[in-house]
């Protein structure tokens, strides 16, 4: 069983809503950086897996997945 998927995407969406209004850097990168800083490797893996599996998500969240650091296999 994995981490409740709607919740991870919901949390990432909230981040996207914040970072999209910030001028410093592209929102997807900022969302991914925040995820990398604060989520455990398993949560990150689950999140990326869900996005890859086609979970419905905000475009920024979808793009952010590419910048999320995954634990070494």
């Amino acid at each position: 069983m994995s981490h409740d998927h709607s919740k991870l995407i919901r949390m990432a969406t909230q981040m996207a809503q914040f970072f999209t209004s910030q001028p410093d850097r592209p929102a997807p990168e900022a969302v991914a950086a925040h995820i990398n800083e604060s989520w455990s490797p398993r949560m990150r893996q689950d999140f990326v897996d869900q996005i890859r599996a086609g979970a419905e998500a905000d475009p920024i969240v979808r793009e952010a997945a590419a910048f999320v650091r995954l634990p070494a296999a």
Binding site: H3, E37, S40
Partner: peptide, 9 residues
């Protein structure tokens, strides 16, 4: 080097 879990997590 990896962040752990927060309480809700």
């Amino acid at each position: 080097p990896e962040p752990g879990l927060r309480i809700p997590n």
